[in-house]
Amino acid sequence: MNTRASIRFALAAAITAIVSALPHLAHAQTTLAPAAQTQAAAVTRPFAPPPESSMPATGDFGATVRLGQQIFLHTGELAGKYVGNSLNCASCHLDAGRKADSGPLWAAYVSYPAWRSKDGKVSTLAERMQGCFLYSMNGKAPPANDPLMVALETYAFWLAQGAPVGGTLSGRGYPKLPAPAQVPDYARGGQVYAQHCALCHGDDGQGQTSHGETVFPPLWGPRSFNWGAGMHELQNASAFIKANMPLGLGGTLTDQEAWDVAKFMDSHERPQDPRFTGSVETTRTRYHDSPWSMYGRTVNGHVLGSQ
């Protein structure tokens, strides 16, 4: 047999072998691929909440969704008896709870109930929201059956239409930053703050209001979140800042700048942790035993948390 004939023979044999194997390959793809593809899609496919224009306009359900959105945007005005500072839900959960990588409300809805080390138990979405009022709003937790809680949960449910329940959802929470190359530094952070943050939040960190409405929230001081809020921890604050700040320019700060300015922001005094035991040292040991918490640390001669 000449060389050309040998090649034709080998190709024919290879094609025959492939054709013979096709039924088995098809069966394997049918039985294995859908589960793998579904899992991959749940992890990588970006979720988009429904557009605001599709919000139901009539009926009790539509009215409750719209009320939940308004409470989210104007929390102090519409839920004032449970709010102790000048923040709104949307101060930290941007674009009315819609923005990915900004603690979006749609991701929270499909992620609870869940174990939370902060609570030491499995918490419901309602309990998670109550914690926001207690810590981030420096207020008190509304009863779970309060109409405003029902409205907030209904708004979250509407935003989460089509989101996979219990899976890993892209855009949930804040994207984690790698450990900083250098130890976060107060002085460097102050420079970043002056250059990129003070225009909106003020040289004194007290934010800006317009006609009594908070436009840019205070970042420390008596009208800001308290020492129990997750944003007081450097890993949370730096991740939020990196992804979202300056407003509309998220991702423009370096990782180190985000860590440094988080250190600067969280090294200022703020309202006391409502779990305060009567001793800053004991409260730190019990609730803030973390390298990322500034509570109980001494900065510029002042022990944070001692007012």
Score class of each variant (00 low, 15 high):
residue 47 F to E: 10
residue 39 Q to Y: 15
residue 57 A to S: 15
residue 49 P to M: 10
residue 45 R to F: 14
residue 64 T to K: 05
residue 85 N to L: 12
residue 41 A to C: 13
residue 60 D to E: 12
residue 27 H to A: 10
residue 47 F to D: 05
residue 84 G to F: 03
residue 37 Q to I: 12
residue 94 L to D: 00
residue 35 A to I: 01
residue 41 A to R: 13
residue 93 H to N: 04
residue 29 Q to C: 12
residue 52 E to M: 11
residue 89 C to R: 01
residue 45 R to C: 14
residue 77 E to Q: 04
residue 63 A to N: 08
residue 96 A to N: 13
residue 28 A to N: 14
residue 65 V to L: 05
residue 75 T to S: 09
residue 34 P to I: 08
residue 76 G to W: 01
residue 85 N to D: 13
residue 42 A to L: 15
residue 83 V to T: 11
residue 42 A to D: 14
residue 98 R to A: 08
residue 94 L to M: 05
residue 89 C to H: 00
residue 89 C to K: 00
residue 54 S to G: 06
residue 64 T to D: 04
residue 94 L to G: 03
residue 39 Q to M: 15
residue 63 A to M: 06
residue 46 P to S: 13
residue 76 G to D: 03
residue 65 V to M: 02
residue 88 N to W: 00
residue 31 T to F: 05
residue 70 Q to F: 03
residue 82 Y to L: 04
residue 88 N to T: 06
residue 56 P to Y: 10
residue 45 R to D: 10
residue 91 S to G: 10
residue 74 H to C: 05
residue 81 K to I: 12
residue 43 V to E: 11
residue 77 E to R: 00
residue 75 T to K: 07
residue 30 T to P: 03
residue 45 R to G: 06
residue 44 T to Y: 09
residue 58 T to R: 13
residue 93 H to M: 02
residue 88 N to D: 09
residue 98 R to Q: 15
residue 75 T to N: 07
residue 38 T to P: 07
residue 79 A to T: 05
residue 81 K to S: 12
residue 77 E to K: 02
residue 72 F to I: 01
residue 32 L to H: 07
residue 69 Q to V: 04
residue 66 R to V: 06
residue 96 A to T: 09
residue 70 Q to L: 03
residue 98 R to Y: 08
residue 34 P to M: 11
residue 93 H to S: 06
